[in-house]
């Protein structure tokens, strides 16, 4: 019962596509789990089910043992979940700083009335500046989010999630669109966050970085977890190789 996050036999169907098929996952506090799988395996869908953006047709999501399947996204985030979107979703008309300040002010935005009687942004601004420095966006605070290239928007996505002070951080392809050096840095930043006792689930196609930083890997294929364990063991699993046939990703990871 010590799992910080548990997905129990979650299934969800979009028209003719069974995106999740009784997917189950248990994550202990402090773990750093890489969630991999071919395109269309259901990785994004699983993260969306965990955060409540999608409701599973059947199955449950548990946070620290409590069933949150019917709670809103905001309620789950307030209990320590945070998600970065695969397709970045910045507030484009706001500055980079304001994007992060809003997240950092989650105490102040707990309800409209409470928010109405709060004006000061001092402490949130300070915290947001520090986080932006940490993800490598120092110096871009005053720019409009709209003006950032994709690589930096990926970092902004991470910065906003970190500003929520999550206990469980869900990252959907945070390294996509970054060059080799940037990906390395970003992966290190994520590893450092995990080292400060934040549980991390990392969905990523960059297997080189996943193998480097994650201590456990779960493989999703056709909506189900088909393999789960230590990185080397999972990579040697014939089922995983089969799942990736034609995808060419494992060959790359071996290189």
């Amino acid at each position: 019962m010590s799992a910080v996050l548990a997905v129990q036999a979650a299934s969800i169907r979009f028209g003719g596509v069974q995106a999740l098929q009784e997917a189950s996952l248990r994550v202990e506090p402090g773990e750093f789990v890489g969630l991999i799988g071919p395109n269309g395996a259901g990785k994004t869908t699983l993260l969306r089910v965990i955060t409540g953006i999608l409701r599973p047709d059947t199955g449950h999501v548990l946070l620290r043992g409590a069933d949150v399947t019917h709670q809103s996204t905001a309620a789950r985030v307030r209990q320590g979940l945070a998600l970065t979107h695969q397709i970045v979703r910045p507030f484009r008309s706001m500055t980079v700083l304001d994007n992060v300040v809003l997240a950092a002010g989650y105490h102040r935005t707990s309800g409209p009335l409470h928010a109405l009687f709060n004006v000061s942004r001092g402490s949130e601004t300070e915290r947001a500046m520090a986080i932006l420095g940490k993800v490598g966006l120092g110096g871009s605070e005053r720019k409009l989010a709209d003006a950032l290239p994709l690589g930096q928007l990926k970092r902004l996505e991470l910065a906003r999630a970190l500003a929520l002070e999550p206990s469980v951080l869900l990252l959907d392809e945070p390294l996509a669109g970054l060059n080799h050096t940037e990906a390395l840095q970003q992966a290190d930043t994520i590893a450092a966050v995990n080292a400060e006792s934040t549980t991390v689930i990392l969905v990523e196609h960059n297997l080189e970085q996943v193998m480097r930083v994650c201590r456990r890997i779960a493989v999703l294929n056709a909506g189900a977890i088909v393999s789960d364990g230590a990185p080397a063991q999972v990579m040697a699993d014939p089922i995983v190789r089969e799942a990736y046939v034609g995808d060419g990703v494992v060959a790359h990871a071996d290189a």
Partner: peptide, 26 residues
């Protein structure tokens, strides 16, 4: 105020606001 700040976030992208702990409906 933080209410206006949050209104702007909801107005621009309510799903993104929800992932930042904003109860969009309220």
């Amino acid at each position: 105020s933080w209410m206006g700040f949050t209104f702007r976030a909801v107005g621009e992208d309510e799903d993104a606001a929800a992932t930042l702990a904003v109860n969009v409906a309220s």
